[in-house]
Nucleic acid binder design. Structure first.
Length: 219
DNA sequence: GACCAGGCACATC
DNA sequence: GATGTGCATGGT
């Protein structure tokens, strides 16, 4: 009989052993992380990279530049990520939020208590719980666990949570049972994404899954 | 050509 | 609170 804490540690160890450190987030600056977090919503990362590169070429990866750019221009540049009209509004909404509250300064924004900032980010149209938490953890270096579709799929496949569990239920499942360490939260989520991309897909390849049978040890 | 990808807002019950 | 739908490109 293992505890939840025990099985979460076991999962982490196995993933780390299989895939190694992930060095997340795949973005050069905190601002780039934030834009990437918005653009990757329900979108393959390879397409986000194309959009980020388009923005970089036009020197648009700064708050000021994105404040000035015309929505139509922005939409064209982020087209590869899909939903480009929606995402144009989302990016613009975040930029407006950043200037209205923090004079366009990420440094000032992250001086805010991270739970207060979280609730403010959730009030920005286009930023939901996963995007907010990704911003807080990977751009702001705050101790919060990011939950995504892979997390839900992997845990429910192993009968550790219900597939219908809410975002906060899954988040608490981790945060109530893991040490409150930024580095651990960072690496753990990245490793789950790695497993999800490689193996735990809609059509899984359980034969080579490093977590195979882990739920049986739990009972 | 079908299926999928590191969500979210909004309408409706 | 749960469930359904629109948003859209690009890779496999």
């Amino acid at each position: 009989m293992k505890t939840t804490k025990g099985i979460l540690e076991e999962i982490y160890q196995r993933l780390y052993k299989s895939f190694g450190p992930q060095h997340w987030w795949p973005g050069k600056t905190p601002f780039e992380v934030i834009i990437g977090a918005i653009l990757t919503q329900n979108t393959a990362w390879v397409n986000v990279e194309k959009a980020i590169n388009n923005l970089r070429k036009k020197s648009l990866l700064t708050p000021k530049a994105l404040k000035r750019v015309l929505p139509k221009t922005l939409a064209t540049l982020i087209r590869p990520t899909g939903y480009y009209n929606q995402k144009t509004k989302k990016v613009k909404n975040f930029i407006r939020f950043l200037f209205d509250n923090y004079q366009g300064s990420l440094k000032k924004m992250f001086l805010e208590d991270f739970l207060v900032l979280r609730s403010k980010l959730l009030n920005v149209n286009g930023i939901g719980p996963e995007t907010a938490d990704s911003i807080l953890l990977y751009a702001g270096n705050s101790p919060i666990f990011v939950v995504d579709a892979y997390t839900r799929r992997i845990l429910s496949r192993h009968n550790l949570i219900s597939y219908q569990a809410s975002y906060s239920e899954i988040q608490n499942y981790f945060m109530d049972n893991l040490e409150n360490e930024i580095k651990l939260f960072n690496e753990y989520h990245a490793l789950l994404v790695c497993l999800g991309k490689e193996i735990c897909k809609p059509k899984p390849n359980c034969r080579i899954c490093p977590l195979r049978g882990i739920e049986k040890e739990f009972v």
